[in-house]
């Protein structure tokens, strides 16, 4: 829908790049979200940037937690046995 009364200028690429997380988190109000999407639809640079942020999140999700040393596990199991038995 057109907004004849709106005087808001278009977002710049720099602004869109800084709004990317708010956008992905669904934290933007409808109007701000609409402005981001309007910008993305006409901007190859920002579209790439958004895709790269999504790739970064996906790849980060492929990492695994570090392993913990065996002696810590043994000590904690002892504590648990003490608790369960007591």
């Amino acid at each position: 829908m057109s907004r004849p009364g709106s005087t808001q200028r278009a977002l710049t690429c720099h602004e869109v790049v800084e709004l990317v997380t708010d956008y992905l988190e669904g934290a933007l109000a409808d109007e701000a979200r609409r402005r981001v999407e309007e910008h993305l639809s006409g901007c190859e640079g920002c579209t790439r940037y958004l895709a790269q942020m999504r790739d970064t999140i996906r790849l980060t999700g492929m990492l695994t937690e570090e392993q913990i040393p065996e002696e810590q596990k043994v000590a904690l199991l002892d504590a648990f046995r003490g608790w369960a038995g007591g």
Partner: peptide, 12 residues
């Protein structure tokens, strides 16, 4: 174009 990309980021 103030605030616009100087060059687009390389595509992944």
């Amino acid at each position: 174009s103030p605030g616009g990309w100087r060059t687009h980021p390389e595509d992944w």
